[in-house]
Design a protein around this nucleic acid. Sequence first.
DNA 1: GGAGCACTTGATCGATCAATCAAGTAATGC
DNA 2: GCATTACTTGATTGATCGATCAAGTGCTCC
Lengths: 199, 199
Amino acid sequence: MDDTRERILFSAMKLFAEKGYLSTSVADILKGAGAHSGSLYHFFPTKQDVLVAVLGLYRDGIEPMLLAPAWDGVSDPIERVFALLAAYRRMLAGTDCLYGCPIGSLALELHEPDPPVRELLAVNFSGWVAHVQACLDQARERLPAGTDRRSLATFVLTVMEGGVMQSRTHRTLEAFDAGVSRLRDYFMRLEQAAQLERE
Amino acid sequence: MDDTRERILFSAMKLFAEKGYLSTSVADILKGAGAHSGSLYHFFPTKQDVLVAVLGLYRDGIEPMLLAPAWDGVSDPIERVFALLAAYRRMLAGTDCLYGCPIGSLALELHEPDPPVRELLAVNFSGWVAHVQACLDQARERLPAGTDRRSLATFVLTVMEGGVMQSRTHRTLEAFDAGVSRLRDYFMRLEQAAQLERE
DNA sequence: GGAGCACTTGATCGATCAATCAAGTAATGC
DNA sequence: GCATTACTTGATTGATCGATCAAGTGCTCC
């Protein structure tokens, strides 16, 4: 079959998200893919190259797999930011707070990742932040003058990842919801301040 | 010697923070401690029990090892919150953004930790949040009436952990600093709002 | 001084790991 | 119809893992 490479890739993606990179053995990946070790090593020089390919899938999937469904029917740029956070909340809620953001998990699991891996983790974060910043840029006039929108977009990712981490640990949505509520409050105050500026 | 147990414990603490739990072998711990496997297994039934003991050290060390030095000479309760964040910033800066919060790293590395481990991770987070909330309670009158101070304290940990994660990945303090700046801005606006309320 | 206990030493175990490789199959190009 | 290339199969390798254990050391208490 021609799709062996893809079956291996998606099996690895699933397992890395569920059990992490180190706890997933090559044998696990092969079992999930219905393939044999020779096939995996035909397509990928090492296990780490499988990870690199998986991180590439995430990078390329941000728009079509994550943002498109999350933003379906949501046009307001600031609401889109919170719709994205709501998508992560659904992921947490749908897995009893077991799985949140696979990139964040891998980023902290791999303490000193080889350059290509760290690069791809960083690219995934940057891509996410860039899309959020595009929303903020669109809502530029609703934010106080001089707002550092790149910094604010980074902050949104910070709140998401920090919330996911705590919610996974406590197995409760409380920390994630607290983060989103506080971010809501912050945005509300920013919009209020911008409103006052305009008067 | 009587301190073998302690040497093992502190060697494990150091290595878990540097390389994570899974990437640290029992042999690594023994080498760092100058001990032999029989000694380790005399004091701890399994490697996981070493982790449990290390997490206990962190839990008991929050006040004397983390807060006391961070808050030395800082009495204002809200400044204490940011002094704590500054301590983490120093940790990041002093290690080229390699090491941030060991609890956060372990929390995301161990995807489905055994109950005692997850419990101790959660207890560490809760203890940290409780101390921050104590600061906020002290500054109660400087915050808007009805502010959920527990939620706000959780938010502070969220910002710290999310910032550390990104800064470690990018090997840059930018994301961490962005988070702290935004949190500063948020607190400033909260204090302003409380000020207006009082008039 | 001897029994009992706490702890150390280090060889060793079976399991599991990522990775290799020779042999085999099937499709393509000429 | 033959050679070439792409891919599959699965046994196997050596390394490393957490954990065990029998033997030994040295202290304490009576």
